[in-house]
């Protein structure tokens, strides 16, 4: 089980008009790991997530999920059904609904048959409560999701992913706009999520947070993988230092 690759990206090219964002990118993520993805603005991090979830079509190359399934011609709905969950950069919860309803919808969505099932089973109710405890929102479940604090919304969204029992969780900037206490809680949450049958990908700007929660870090630069390895190794790499400190201004202004 653990030898299987959760994600296998092979020679991926994505461009908008004449502007190439991802250039022949190849990349793998294994089950059981928590992977960090860092890189300067415009390196292609969000575009990579967009391609993985079907939001953006890629021109060439391919993406395989769980070793064998190519997602080239799948819609975002079919990809989500394969077990790829994504938290967006901007927290996306159903603000007019309560926390409980948010989780209930995510739970029902995870099993297409239960969308039309009139009443939740006691097992399902229990699961919603378990998840809400995991994300630290058990006392806020009846509150309207739109009135939750920024950090709570992020957790609720992560909870909505977990409750569907996904194989891959993609987190786009999970701690953006959080204070250090909330970051700590989020780190804890991620370490609780990890398991042998799940792969977690964290895209973040916060190096410290990435170092704290991730086993391996991938550095994206200019649409390619620049280096991969444990945080300590990556941070000491002269190229990475160059990109982040020396060339960042230049690369940002060139796009």
């Amino acid at each position: 089980m653990t030898t299987k690759q959760a994600l296998y990206v092979s020679g991926l090219n994505v461009s908008f008009g004449n502007f190439a964002v991802l250039k022949n990118l190849s990349w793998t993520v294994d089950f059981g790991e928590v992977r960090g993805v860092i890189g300067p603005n415009g390196a292609g991090k969000t575009t990579l997530l967009d391609s993985l979830t079907g939001k953006t079509r890629y021109q060439s190359g391919d993406i395989y999920v769980k070793d064998t399934v190519s997602i080239k011609n799948l819609t975002e709905i079919e990809i989500a059904k394969l077990g790829i969950g994504r938290k967006f950069q901007k927290p996306s919860v159903f603000s007019g609904l309560s926390g409980f309803q948010n989780l209930e919808i995510a739970l029902r969505a995870g099993h297409s048959r239960s969308i039309y099932q009139p009443k939740l089973t006691s097992r399902q109710r229990e699961k919603i409560h378990e998840t809400s405890e995991l994300i630290g929102l058990s006392s806020e479940l009846s509150r309207n999701a739109g009135t939750l604090a920024h950090g709570q919304k992020q957790w609720l969204e992560i909870g909505m992913l977990i409750i569907a029992e996904p194989s891959v969780i993609l987190l786009d900037e999970p701690v953006a706009g959080m204070n250090s206490e909330e970051r700590g809680k989020t780190a804890e949450l991620i370490s609780n999520i990890r398991g042998p049958n799940i792969a977690v990908v964290v895209v973040e700007h916060d190096m410290e947070f990435v170092g704290q929660v991730c086993d391996t870090v991938t550095v994206l630069h200019d649409g390619r993988v620049m280096i991969e390895g444990p945080m300590g190794v990556v941070q000491a790499d002269p190229q990475v230092i160059d990109v982040y400190l020396g060339k960042e201004a230049a690369s940002a202004s060139s796009h």
Partner: peptide, 24 residues
């Protein structure tokens, strides 16, 4: 008030979120 109604509300609030949860 039924589950369908909840999903209708979810479409109203954020249709794309619902799609990325795997709902057609």
């Amino acid at each position: 008030d039924s589950p369908i109604g909840q999903f209708m509300l979810a479409v109203r609030e954020d249709e794309s979120r619902l799609r990325f949860l795997g709902v057609n």
